[in-house]
Each structure stands twice: as C-alpha cells, then as structure tokens.
Design a protein around this nucleic acid. Structure first.
Length: 852
RNA sequence: GGAUUCUUAGCUCAGUUGGUUAGAGCACCUGCCUUACAAGCAGGGGGUCACAGGUUCGAGUCCUGUAGAGUCCACCA
C-alpha cells in the first residue's frame, strides 16, 4: 500500500529509465497518424535554465497527450553548436589551461571543442531525463553532425547558385573580442555613458572652422569628408570647399548630403565610410575613399599614424589629449547614448568594413509575407505574434552569415588564383577553402527538415514533415522562427510547422528578468530536488496564459506539491477501499456515483477542448477544481456512506483512473506511480494508456442541478448551525422531497436517529433551515434552547436574507422583462435566469412565513 | 519615432465569440486531530475590474482618449 505522504524523490526514481527501456518514447508506428515536433535545440554551452524547463514541459505535455490519444509521435531532440558562444567558452577554458587557440591550430582547437560538446551534451541529456520529457533519442541530431552539415552545404550552394547568397564588402558588426562578424540580431544595444567630442575642422585657407561633433573621435583617421545638409543655410555655401582633418592634416571635402540632419548636433557630420554604416552609404553616393584604421582586434593600424598599435579606447584617450594641446577640441559634452554590444562576448561592437557572405533577404521575406496571407500560413498561438514575424519580414536587411570562427560549418567555397568555386569538395590541387564558418542560425534555420534527412527524399521526411507544432519563447521569433519559415518555404515549398506556440519569459518573484548579473536565477534542478519534477511542471504550465511572462514563485510550486499530495491521499483512500474489486460493475449506481461520472464527462470534454487549443492553464484549473472540490471534497465524502456498493467502488476507481490519465501529460511520474498500483487497468504503463474520452452512458445530466442544491443546502446548514452555536447532539427534524438528497444530507450533517424527533416539545425553540427549488425542497429544523437575544439575532439574519433575495428577484424580473435581453440573449441563459428566479421566489415566500 | 503587452481581492494570476451579483492559489479571521490527507477539513471576510467618455437591451471583455508599468524594433554623426 502507498505511504501516507507523497515522497517525490522516491516516486521519480527509475521511472524514466524504465520508459526508455520499454521504448515508449520511440516513434514509427505506421498504423497511426503521425504527429511531429522538433525540440528547439539548446546550446551546448551550459545547463538548462527555467526557461528551458518551461519550454520542454509544454512540448512534453503535447507529446504525451498526442501519444495517449493514438498518434505516432515523433518528438525529435537535438542540440545546437552555438558557434560564437561555444567557441568563446572553449577559448576561455583553454586560456585557463594556458593555451592560445592559435597555438594549437584549427584541428587542435576543434578536437577540444568536440570534447567540450560531448561533456555538455551529456549534462543536457541528464537534465532532460530529470524533466521527464519523452524525446525520441533514436533521432537525436546535432547542428554540426553529418546530416546537418550535408543539408547546410546543399542549402548554401543552392542559394548561391540562385543568387540568394552573395559575397560582398560591407560594414558589418564586428566583435573585436571574438574577432568575428555578427548579424544585426546578435547585437544588443545598451545605454552607456559617453560624450560628444566637438572638434575643430578648419576650413581650407581660412581661420574659420566647422564644429564637428563625434562620439568616436578616434575614427577621424578614417574621415574622407564632412557632410552638411544641402538645405542648411549655415553651411551650404561651403559645399565643395575642403577642411583640414585634425592631426592628420589631410584635406577632405565638405559635401552636401541629406544624411546630415540640421536639427541634430551641430549640423556637421564627419564621414568615415569604413567605420560607420551610414557613412558607408554616404561614401557610396559621393564616391569617397574608404580608409580602414583598425585591425580585427580593434587596435589602431598604420593609418592612425603614431596611434598605431593602441587599443581603440586607449587611442581615444590619448587623441583627446593631443587635440586639447593643439587647441582643436572645442568641448566635451557628456551624454548617455545607446551603443551596440556583442550578445555573446559583451564587448562594444565596432562597425567594420570587411568581406563577408550575405543572404539576400528581400525575396525570402516577401515569400513569407505572401504566404501569411494564405490558408497555408503559420498559425501563431496567440495570434498577435504573427505581427512580430510580419514586422520583421517587412523591414529586414541582408543577413551576414559568415563568421570568422572555427567551430561551425565551413563555408563551401574554394579559391585559387583569384578564382572562386562554390562546392563541397575541393575542386582539386591548389584550391584553398574559405576560412569562415557559417552563422549557427543558418543551420538552425533548416532544423525542422534537415533533421529528417532533407535534402534526400527520406522516409522520415515524407512521413513527419511539415511538423505539427513548434514551441518557443517570443524572444526567439526573429532569430529562429522567421528564419525557419523562409528557409522552409524556399527549400521545401512548405511552412516548417503548422502551429507556432509562443510562450513568455520567466521572471523572478519581483518581475525582473532572471540573469546571471542579478544573481536571481533559479536552477530547475534545485526545484526538482525540493518539490519534484511533477510539481515544477504543473506550476510552470498552468500559471499563466499563452504568450504571457511567468513570475517564478516558489510558494506556488509548494502549493502544487500540496495538490499532488492531495491526489496521492485520495488515491490511497480509493486503493484501500477497492482492494477486492476485480472488475468494473456499474449496474447499481447511486445518485452521487451518477453525478461524479457526469462531472467527469464534463471535465474530459473541457480538458480535451483546452488541450487542443494549448490552453494549459485552463486545463490546470479545470482539473484542480474537479479533483479537489468535486472528487475529494464531495464525492469521496459521499462515497463513505455506500462502501458496500460495488458500483460505487467501481466509480471511485474508475474516476481515479481517469483523473490520473488526464493528469499524466502534466505529472508523468506520480501518475505512473499511482497507476501502477491500480488493480484494474488496460496497460502496463499509463504512458501508453488511451487518453480519456467522454462516455455517453455516463451522462446523467439531471443530477447536476440537484447535487448543486444539495451541496448548497449542506453549506447553508453548516453556516447557520455554526453562527447559532447549535450543538452536535441537537434535536432535529428533517424532511426532503428527494430520497437521494435525504440520505446524502442526513449522512453528511450527521443527523442521527437518536436525535430525531417528530414533535416540537415546548421547551425547544426552532431554527429552520430550508431551501426550495423546482428540483429539490428540503426543510431541516433544529430544536434548541435559546435566549430571546438569540432569537432576535435569527430574525435579523432572516431579514438580511430577505432583503438580499428581494434585490436579486427584482434584478432578475427587470432583466426578464427587458425584451432586448429576452430576444437577444442565448435561450439557455434566459431559461437559467427564469429557473433561478422561480427558486428565489419560493425561498423568499418561506422566509416571509417565518418572519411573521 | 513605430509596434506590442499589461493595469482585476493584501500578493501572484485566470476570466473564451460582449450575456448581466467577477474566479483561483497564497495570505487573513473562526471552529475542528471527523483516519485518505493538519502539507488537512468545515465555515467566513475581502474587488465601484487604472481613469474618463462612447457603442449596446447588456461592457472586466468592443471603440476612443488619458495616466502608469514592461518588452521588442528603428534612430542615436
């Protein structure tokens, strides 16, 4: 028999291994309809955080539900090589060991990186196991494995041949720490303290100068013009003249360009085409020279004259000193401005002119936008997230996909004598492969189909693609979701997933983002240790509406634990009382059996409806109130009165069995444990049992209102009894027009035979509790000794109730006499109003009698 | 500047296509060790749904405006 308390550690032990051994997570049953999802591959850089725990639990709920409901579920796991992030971590680790990556070379470094990957992949798999998620490990993939590499190479070459990938020299976001280019999405803008340095650019052959303000004075070495707005009357007459570039003393032209904003700063802008994206454009318009003044680690080069070799910030400092000395500095204006930082290394981005590979976005984005207007669009849940996709697709810029790293898929391009060939294999002797690797997201973008063996025409691909649903957080929509959609459309002519279920981000108790720097992060593994995986899962998935952020509140995890303990104990009760039951027998159902079976049907219906809509918080509250309020508080209590009835025992066990199944996707471990203790069950594991369906023969709809009346009457009786201090052994008289109600009420209120009296003895006063409705009429009279004071109190109470009823009745009458309501409102609501009105009138008439 | 979410009980959140006395958990008050569960049971109190208008027979829900909080994108010489 079960222990008296739920012990999550014991319950969650060894079950996962068993499921794995039995092969329950495997896909491939061809007799069933396929259902597929790919797991958003976590980076192999660390451990899973609460956000992952949330994300994987949602998916596992879907997977388990669909599997139980008869689908052949493929939930494909995998991990992401996370080029920059991993390379940065491996470099840091090597540094600790005193190794420089360039010393050991590309091959040596990659060996180390693979070792790192293997170690972290193992950790991640352990954490997946702890979360209880039902992944098909036989299909596990890695973004750098052969299957993925093949797909990436194919995609790259195809896009190159179709003109969708090109190589070009442009200003890109450069990370001087990782020494690589980044895409715009990998740049995070932060507000930092900085300054506007106002510099004197003397006009040629004159004592006058232009006040040119810049936040990055060290870039002046790359200046090839100063721009003013052609409409700016202060300066436009100077267009065509030259200014003397400070320190360098080179002559550079004053040009007229719309880019110079008259309202902003001084109206004069220095133009550095090799170090600023806007200036790059200006440079193109005016055919200006591009002078690169820094090397790849953001140290000044020979173009910066005597500053050569200095770091950019050091150079800035020294340059300012020199400008001051030479009286070329007008002022330093302190400002706070937003500056791009590398998402991974955290260093300030340097806009940098370099040769990179790009994906031409416009045609791909337009295809997505066009597709979202069709029936075959990606269905976002909640819908509003489609706008984020569309906004991003509307104004996007070409995607820089080359990275100057080693950890990644190498660009399949070969060079010899100024010639370039794009292909996988070396074209032959003397050809050298491009040193760059591709952006991680380029491989992730192909994930839903590359994992299934595309571009080959595989059985997996044909059976499971497109996938049914993708689950991820909203912060990843443009990084990943958008890219999968356009690559899916480009290569497979299909959207990669029909539904895209978006959840929010996890915040701490005070609503702040969880981050390392704040130190407010919570390790899901600690929560599992403390409260169990089932409690964590249920908390994560039932405490917010789709798309909303979730505040992590340990108290709520704790109260979920209590809920599980409640289920545990209810199960104990059922198991203890049904030990001898060999098979279900529903021939002799009592009134409360019929009621709970009907309520179970309604619950199944609601739960299924909400499961299909991914509204898990609704499923949660539906199950919570059914289990706790209906099953435990009411039904189990009532069942105690008919323990000799085999049909009642059957009902107890049957309802429990169904509760466990309904809960299983949320709480896989405890439901498996309890299910394994059931005497009657269809399957050896709850995982492979069929998900509950509504059973028409268990619909006894007329029990619902009657039971509601009975329970209300019981509550009312208890309240009045408590308020009036009626003793347990008070004499009473009880009448009911319904024998089921009579039994349930007298048993529950403990109305014993010995306290029952027929006639009022003059010594007693009467306390009448009654309820009148069309379904049920009860009168319970307690006889007791009371003071006059008590009696007046009772009258007061009755008067209050009378007043309440009168208000309610007049409100309902007004409502029902309103033709607008009666004609327009749904008829079942109108009927319900009428019924309640009738019942209230009956009750009121009784109260009036008593007051008189 | 553009987009978007949020404002409901002391706290954290639900509240489906508008349906008329707004729900839950936790916290609070009262009484119970009634053997499935005191991590529980039985009762109870607590909300002019941010504010102001509008549409409607009917608004927490739809529309307009205001205030506050958050997030994303763009710009930031």
């Amino acid at each position: 028999m079960l222990e008296t308390k739920y012990n999550h550690k014991k319950v969650e032990e060894k079950k996962y291994e068993k499921w794995l051994d039995k092969g329950y997570f495997l896909s491939g049953d061809k007799t069933k309809t396929p259902f597929s999802m790919v797991l958003p591959p976590p980076n192999v850089t660390g451990k899973l955080h609460l956000g992952h725990a949330w994300d994987v639990t949602i998916q596992d709920i879907i997977a388990r539900y669909k599997r139980m409901d008869g689908y052949d579920v493929l939930w494909l796991p995998g991990m992401d090589h996370a080029a920059i992030a991993t390379e940065a971590k491996v470099v840091a680790k090597l540094k600790e060991e005193g190794i420089n990556k360039y010393e050991i070379g590309r091959e040596g470094f990659l060996k180390k990186a693979w070792e790192w990957k293997d170690e972290y992949a193992k950790n991640i798999r352990n954490q997946w196991a702890k979360m209880g998620i039902s992944l098909d490990y036989s299909k596990e993939r890695f973004t750098l494995d052969e299957i993925s590499t093949k797909a990436v190479n194919y995609a790259f070459i195809k896009m190159y041949n179709d003109g969708l990938i090109y190589k070009g020299k442009k200003i890109i976001n450069w990370d001087p720490e990782a020494k690589t280019a980044l895409s715009n999405e990998e740049v995070i803008y932060k507000n930092v303290e900085g300054a506007f340095y106002h510099l004197k650019y003397y006009i040629e052959d004159s004592n006058e100068y232009l006040d040119v303000a810049t936040t990055r004075p060290e870039t002046l070495f790359g200046d090839t013009a100063v721009a003013v707005n052609p409409k700016d009357e202060r300066y436009n007459k100077l267009i065509g003249k030259n200014v003397i570039l400070p320190i360098v003393n080179r002559l550079i032209p004053i040009i007229g360009d719309e880019h110079a904003d008259m309202e902003k700063g001084t109206g004069c802008v220095k133009i550095t085409p090799a170090h600023d994206p806007n200036d790059f454009e200006v440079g193109n318009r005016h055919d200006l020279q591009r002078i690169v003044i820094m090397d790849e680690s953001a140290h000044m080069n020979e173009n910066a004259l005597h500053y050569k070799g200095l770091d950019r910030f050091e150079a800035r400092e020294k340059l300012i000193e020199e400008l001051k000395e030479k009286d070329l500095l007008i002022e330093i204006e302190k400002i706070t401005h937003s500056v791009g930082h590398s998402e991974r290394t955290g260093v300030m981005i340097e806009p940098y002119l370099s040769q990179q590979w790009f994906v031409k976005m416009r045609p791909l984005a337009d295809a997505v936008l066009a597709n979202q207007k069709t029936e075959g669009k990606v269905n976002f849940i909640p819908e509003r997230f489609e706008k984020i996709l569309n906004n991003w697709m509307n104004d996007c810029y070409d995607w820089c996909i080359s990275r100057q790293l080693w950890w990644g898929i190498r660009v399949p391009a070969w060079y010899k004598d100024g010639e370039m060939k794009v292909q996988v294999e070396s074209p032959g002797e003397g050809w050298v492969q491009d040193e760059d690797v591709l952006d991680t997201w380029f491989s992730s973008a192909l994930w839903p189909f590359s994992t299934l063996g595309w571009p080959d025409n595989t059985e997996l691909y044909n059976r499971y693609y497109p996938t049914n649903v993708l689950v991820t957080a909203y912060d990843i929509i443009f990084f990943w979701v958008a890219r999968m959609v356009f690559q899916g459309l480009e290569f497979t002519d299909k959207i990669p997933f029909n539904d895209c279920l978006i959840h929010g981000l996890i915040r701490d108790k005070d609503g702040r983002k969880m981050s390392k720097s704040l130190g407010n992060g919570i390790d899901p593994m600690d929560m599992i240790e403390e409260y169990g995986c089932d409690a964590l899962r249920f908390f994560l998935t039932t405490n917010s509406a789709p798309g909303q952020d979730l505040r992590f509140d340990e108290e709520k995890v704790k109260s979920t634990w209590n809920f599980i303990n409640k289920i545990w104990n209810a199960s104990r009760f059922v198991l203890i009382n049904t030990e001898n039951l060999k098979e279900y027998d529903f021939k002799n159902l009592t009134f409360s059996d019929k009621w709970i079976l009907t309520r179970l049907n309604k619950t199944i219906e609601e739960v299924r409806k909400n499961m299909d809509k991914y509204e898990f918080h609704n499923v949660g509250s539906e199950l919570y109130s059914f289990i706790w309020n209906d099953f435990c508080d009411a039904y189990i209590e009532f069942s105690k009165f008919n323990m000799d009835n085999i049909s009642s025992k059957s009902t107890l066990l049957y309802v429990l069995e169904n509760i466990l199944k309904l809960l299983h996707p949320f709480m896989p471990f405890v439901t498996e444990e309890l299910y394994s203790n059931l005497k009657i069950k269809e399957t050896e594991s709850i995982m492979i049992s069929p998900y509950p369906n509504v059973k028409e023969e268990f619909n006894f709809d007329d029990t619902i209102n009657v039971m509601e009346d009975i329970r209300n009457f019981i509550t009312k009786a208890r309240t009045i009894k408590k308020e009036n201090n009626i003793k347990k052994d008070a004499k009473y008289k009880f009448e009911s027009d319904n024998s089921d109600a009579y039994i349930l009420i007298s048993n529950t209120l403990k109305l014993t035979e010995e306290n029952k009296i027929d006639q009022n003895n003059d010594d007693y006063n009467e306390l009448i509790i009654d309820s009148k409705s069309n379904e049920l009429q009860n009168t319970l009279i307690y006889y007791y000794k009371e003071s006059l004071e008590d009696k007046n109190k009772v009258i007061e109470e009755l008067k209050k109730e009378k007043e309440k009823l009168e208000n309610s009745i007049s409100r309902r009458e007004k409502l029902l006499s309103n033709p607008g309501y009666v004609n327009n409102a749904p008829s079942n609501l109108v009927e319900e109003e009428k019924r309640k009105l009738e019942n209230e009138k009956l009750t009121l008439s009784e109260i009036i009698k008593k007051i008189i």
